[in-house]
Design a protein around this nucleic acid. Sequence first.
RNA 1: GCGGAGUUGCCGGAGCGGUCAAACGGGACAGACUCAAAAUCUGUUAGCUUAGUGCUUACGAAGGUUCGAAUCCUUUACUCCGCACCA
Length: 812
Amino acid sequence: MKHNFAKLELKWQNKWETAKIFHAKEGRGKKFYVLDMFPYPSGEGLHMGHAFVFSLGDVFARFKRMQGFNVIYPIGYDSLGLPAENAAIKSKVHPKTYTEKAIKNFMKQQKAMGWSYDWSRMFKTGDPEYYKWDQWIFLKMLEKGIAYKKKSAVNWCKKCKTVLANEQVVNGKCWRHEDSQVEIKQLDQWFLRTTNYAEELLKGLEKLDWPERAKIMQKNWIGKSHGTEIKFKVNNEVWPVFTTRPDTIHGVTFMVISAQHPKLFGLVTEKQKKDVEKFLKKIKSVSEKDAADLDKQGVFTGAYALNPVNDERIPIWVGNFVLADYGSGMVMAVPAHDQRDYEFAKKYNLKIKEVIRGERLGDKTGAFEGEGVLVNSSKFTGGDSEKAKQKITEYLSKKKLGKKQIQFKLKDWLISRQRYWGAPIPIIYCDKCGIVAVPEKNLPIKLPEKVKFGKDNPLKTAKSWVSVKCPKCNAKARRETDTMDTFTNSSWYYLRYCDPKNKKKIFDSKKTNYWCPVDQYIGGPEHITMHLIYIRFYTKFLKDLGIINFDEPAKKYFTQGIVYGSDGFRMSKSRGNVIEPLGTIKKYGADTLRLYLLSVASPNSSFNWDEKGIQGSCKFVNKIVGYFNNLEFGKIDARTESKLNKTIKEVTEYIQNFKYNLAIISLRNLFNSLPEKTSKEVIEKFLKLFSVFCPHISEELWHKLGNKKFISLEKWPKFDSKKINKEFEKQEELVDKIVSDIINIVRIVGKRKKVYVYTIPNEIKIYSDNLDLIQKRTGLDVMVYAVNDKLKYDPKNSAKKAKPNHPGIYLE
RNA sequence: GCGGAGUUGCCGGAGCGGUCAAACGGGACAGACUCAAAAUCUGUUAGCUUAGUGCUUACGAAGGUUCGAAUCCUUUACUCCGCACCA
């Protein structure tokens, strides 16, 4: 009875492909864009996590397609990037060869899962035809002042041998190397001005239908705070300082400048130079060990700042806890009213001056950070601290000593990478002309094939590639050897799917505007503060550039759970707990695997892989096949009709809301209650619902029913609420109840052969209609009588026990 | 430190004010079929109790709101995740 799923699945995969039924074309009705985050093709191939996420997307795409939407469901490969380069070096092949091979392997597995991608739109970011447009966007950004180069303190990972963006630093460590402490270096690097869009990125969140958690995370990441910029004077130079507590300005007793501040040594006096240098060395060596446990440390710079409200001379210290790139890299310290400043002051014996008095809650020691009344604050004394924030800001503004300011945590995106396997930054350095953009017509700047991988940036070893003529003056010049962060490639890929083969333009705006934005984006939670910020930023930029007419990439976003190994840990090669879908497909078939992955838990929660559980899905699939093997049509009964309509309703709603697990339960319930004979219509509708989960077997059975077209292109069944009758559910419950009652009695009194059931007269139909079922389930002969039946057999007068919903029972 | 998610029966997991001793799946057990097994089908799977009843204890812990709580509120413990000296 077991079907040969391997052969069957392959057959349908091929049929889908030759008939091109999943190819998307513009203008065939209301569009719907379903997008899974494209995979990073690693040599290990697909793992169960991929199988899970992509199945989520596939079900949704199939569902929407059947609902009559013009669905685009593309796939591609994020093939550029460091891990591929490192893996390639390790296995001593060129990154290109490495990724090409990995992609082939991916495709094979993806096809085996039966995902309904439009393969004709597939691309790889590693193709020059793709990254050409990465470079093009860069040039546009350069034109608009969004891309720029600056020297600043940047994060450097020794293991990656490259700098990292702020988003790629996790707990002070590299996002790819938990054991590699990020170092701060002063380097000249390319940045994208994401901060220009900070406000828009924040505001745009409001209208997005994204999980609350994702929105909150992005909001925190963008980190808007309102405050005041106050201008302090240091050696006759103005130093703006950002604070959210201008009301405490009179309590400033020292300033702290960041240890990474580029202008630090402009402040340090001759006398203090040694101390400062020693200090810098010290914090650097400590940070190597463990920066997280580092306490606040600092040393006097010898310089003084003038407090603009009272001209007090305030010593400037240098400290390890001040960020160089937030605000101006220098803070005003008010130890009486800020816990950090307080600790610092205590440690180094600095003055503490109280300027706000209020009611202390809880802790009696340390800084008082609450609200209260101003004291020791010249003419502001006596005022309310909350109001004073505004008053003091106004006062400073009037005197041009400060102004209201909004500050963001979001930083500009550092995109330079000192590595090979990325899109080269299209820039040329000329001794005469300086930084020169590569003319558009010269794009793409292809990666040179021959490079040496080793200590330094590999591109530097491609001597003939590096040396070029200056596009402006034709003098000898050299190319930028940094490449672009891999996240740039994935920041606009969804747009390219709309017109992937375009050689003249990045894409035809008409096409892109038709398909986009993405209607349903699906991806993991780990992308929320990286990829999803970047892709939104790019979208906003491209909108401003005028080539698209929308400013958010994805209206809806669904965060899926993570599939962990059976040991409860993230699947990883080093742990040895990786499960490849291909092995499971071979054993059970793709349909079964899909069904299982989608029914274990709700799609947004994580779960551990457990092969035992797949049995249930396997049985169900086989049961369906078995049912079709001895299929005879009959008439639809009202009960089945009610159940069918109810199921259609539920399944539709559940899928729409990504509750696939519940949709599958609903389908099981329907199937299990199907009578031996029912109408073809019922069977067909059931199969359609089922087909989004198990498309191969559904196509096969659909065909077997005599249909010539693909079930994948059929119309999604509609339900009729009027046909849903709760009475039937109630009857079912009564049947369940009588069955368990009978069995319960048997258990108590021992085995008997005959059962006599006495119902109140108007209920007899429920039981006599279901007599077969009751007999089958109890395994006993059952007779049903109405209590008023004079001819009934009732030796113990059990009929008198009958109540509504509760018939009397006699066994013998 | 801040923010988010979670803690459910042997297990995986639904449920998110009454219809809950709690969907669905797995496992275990029993019965049917079979010479037998697998598969399949049926039932049981908190405890006590009873010719189908009733009771008690149960949804991390402790309190509270309510006629009524796994579901709402408060406190607390633990787990996972994200951010983290943001001035």
